[in-house]
Computed example of a mutant assay.
Amino acid sequence: MPPASELGNFLKNRRAALLPEDVGLVPYGDRRRVPGLRREELCMLAGVSVTHYTRLEQGRSNSASQEVLNAIAQALRLDEDETAHLMNLAAPGRCVAPGSLCPEHASSSARQLINAMADVPALVLDRRNDVLAWNPLGHALLAGHLDFDSVDAPERRPNLTRLLFLDEHFHELYTDWAEEAALAVASLRLTAGRYPDDRRLAELIGQLTMQSPAFAERWTRHPVRTCTSGTKRLHHPTVGTMELAFETLQIPGSPGQRIIAYSAEPGSASEGALRLLGGAVADTAARHKRDNARGQRDGQAQAHP
Score class of each variant (00 low, 15 high):
M1N: 02
P2A: 11
S5V: 13
G8A: 01
F10V: 00
R14W: 03
A17C: 06
Y28E: 13
R32T: 04
R33P: 12
P35I: 06
E41C: 05
M44G: 05
M44I: 04
A46H: 06
V48I: 14
S49A: 05
S49H: 02
R55G: 10
G59S: 07
R60M: 04
N62F: 03
S63E: 04
A64L: 11
A64F: 02
Q66L: 13
Q66Y: 07
E67I: 15
V68I: 15
N70Y: 05
A73H: 09
A75K: 04
L78N: 04
E82C: 08
L86V: 13
L89K: 08
A90D: 13
V96I: 12
S100I: 06
L101R: 11
C102D: 13
S109Q: 09
S109K: 02
S109F: 14
Q112H: 15
Q112A: 15
Q112E: 15
A116G: 15
M117F: 10
L125I: 11
L125D: 02
D126Y: 08
R128G: 13
L137K: 00
G138V: 10
L146H: 12
V151N: 03
E155H: 14
R157V: 13
P158E: 04
N159L: 01
L160Y: 01
L163S: 10
L163A: 15
F165N: 03
L166R: 07
D167T: 07
H169K: 01
D176N: 14
W177Q: 10
A178Q: 11
A181D: 02
L183Y: 03
L183P: 00
A184M: 12
A184Q: 11
L190K: 02
Y195W: 14
Y195L: 10
D198F: 07
R199P: 00
L201P: 14
E203P: 05
E203R: 03
E203S: 11
I205V: 15
L208R: 00
Q211L: 14
S212H: 05
P213E: 07
A216P: 09
T220A: 09
V224P: 00
V224M: 01
T228C: 09
G230K: 06
H236G: 09
P237S: 05
P237F: 01
T241P: 00
A245N: 07
F246V: 12
F246Y: 15
E247H: 13
L249H: 11
Q250C: 02
Q250R: 06
P252K: 06
P252S: 14
G253D: 02
G253R: 06
S254L: 09
Q257K: 06
Q257W: 01
Y262S: 06
S263Y: 08
A264I: 12
G267D: 05
A269D: 12
S270E: 05
S270R: 03
L277I: 05
G279M: 12
A282P: 05
R287C: 07
R287D: 14
H288I: 10
R290M: 11
R294K: 08
Q300A: 12
Q300M: 11
A303E: 12
H304E: 11
H304V: 11
H304K: 08
P305H: 14
P305R: 15
P305C: 07
